[in-house]
Computed example of a mutant assay.
Amino acid sequence: MRRYGPALLLVLVGAAILRISAFSALYLRYVQAGLRPYLIVSGAALVLLGIAMAVVRRSADDAHDDDGDPLDHEHGHAHHGPRVAWLLTLPALALLLFPPPALGSYSAEREAAQRAAQGVGVFPALPAGDPVELGVGEFSSRAIYDSGRSLKGRTVRMTGFVTHGDDGTWYVTRLLVSCCAADAGTSKAEIRGADALPADTWITVTGTWHPKGKLGTDAAWPPVLDATSVERVEQPADPYEKR
Rank of each mutant, 00 (worst) to 15 (best):
Q32V: 14
Q32A: 15
Q32K: 14
Q32N: 15
G34N: 14
G34C: 02
L35C: 01
R36S: 04
R36C: 01
P37M: 06
P37G: 07
V41H: 05
G43K: 01
G43A: 08
G43E: 03
A44Q: 02
A44P: 01
A44I: 07
A44D: 03
A45M: 09
L48K: 04
L49T: 14
L49I: 08
I51G: 09
A52N: 08
M53G: 12
R57V: 07
R58G: 13
S59K: 14
A60I: 09
D61N: 12
D62W: 13
A63M: 13
D66T: 10
D66Q: 14
D67Q: 07
D67E: 14
G68V: 04
G68M: 09
P70I: 06
P70S: 08
L71S: 10
L71D: 12
D72G: 13
D72F: 12
E74T: 11
E74L: 13
E74C: 13
H75Q: 15
G76H: 15
H77L: 06
H79S: 10
H79G: 04
H79P: 03
G81A: 06
P82R: 13
P82D: 13
R83E: 11
A85T: 08
W86P: 00
L88N: 04
T89V: 09
T89A: 15
L90D: 01
L90Y: 06
A92N: 02
A92L: 06
L93V: 11
L97I: 15
F98D: 08
P99H: 12
P100H: 04
P101N: 11
A102Y: 05
A102D: 10
L103T: 00
G104P: 01
S105H: 09
S105I: 01
Y106W: 15
Y106N: 12
S107F: 10
A108M: 06
E109F: 00
R110Q: 14
E111A: 12
E111R: 09
A112Y: 04
Q114T: 15
R115T: 07
R115E: 08
A117F: 11
A117P: 09
G119M: 10
V120C: 07
V122R: 11
F123M: 07
P124V: 03
P124H: 04
P124W: 03
A125G: 04
A125W: 00
L126I: 00
P127L: 02
A128R: 11
A128F: 00
A128K: 07
P131C: 07
P131H: 10
V132Q: 01
E133N: 07
G135V: 07
G135A: 08
G137A: 12
E138T: 07
S141E: 13
R142H: 09
R142Y: 10
R142P: 08
A143I: 09
A143Q: 05
I144W: 08
Y145G: 07
D146P: 05
S147Y: 04
S147K: 14
G148I: 03
G148L: 04
S150W: 01
S150E: 10
L151E: 11
L151T: 06
R154I: 03
T155R: 08
R157N: 03
M158Y: 07
T159C: 05
T159K: 02
G160F: 01
T163F: 00
H164W: 01
H164C: 01
G165N: 04
G165A: 06
D166I: 05
D166S: 13
G168P: 05
W170F: 08
W170E: 00
W170C: 00
